[in-house]
């Protein structure tokens, strides 16, 4: 179990850093979904199947779609964050 936990935690943390750091919005949303998937796997390892299902459906699925839709609606879809955006 320790090995599986170690791998999932590593994937989760790297994906979280990518979600925060990646300039490309779509890639960042994808990274956020990876965080949720790894988290969902960890919940399953922790013997919490209900939570794992909910995290996969809500966290990885719906949240990702919602974030992507919002990005599309405000015209950031596929765009990059500009450093020090100023208007």
């Amino acid at each position: 179990m320790t090995v599986l936990v170690a791998i999932s935690v590593a994937v989760m943390l790297i994906a979280a850093i990518m979600a925060v750091a990646l300039r490309n919005w779509l890639a960042a949303v994808a990274a956020l979904s990876v965080v949720s998937l790894a988290l969902s796997f960890l919940f399953a390892l922790l013997r919490a199947p209900d939570v794992a299902l909910a995290e996969a459906a809500v966290g990885a699925g719906l949240s990702g779609v919602l974030l992507a839709l919002t990005l599309r609606r405000i015209g950031l879809w596929g765009g990059r964050e500009k450093k020090g955006e100023k208007e």
Binding site: D50, L53, A54, A57, V58, L62, V65
Partner: peptide, 16 residues
């Protein structure tokens, strides 16, 4: 495992 929330999320996905 599963229930109203998980199933509800899937129903939402079905309609969306």
């Amino acid at each position: 495992p599963g229930g109203g929330f998980q199933g509800g999320a899937i129903l939402a996905a079905a309609f969306f």
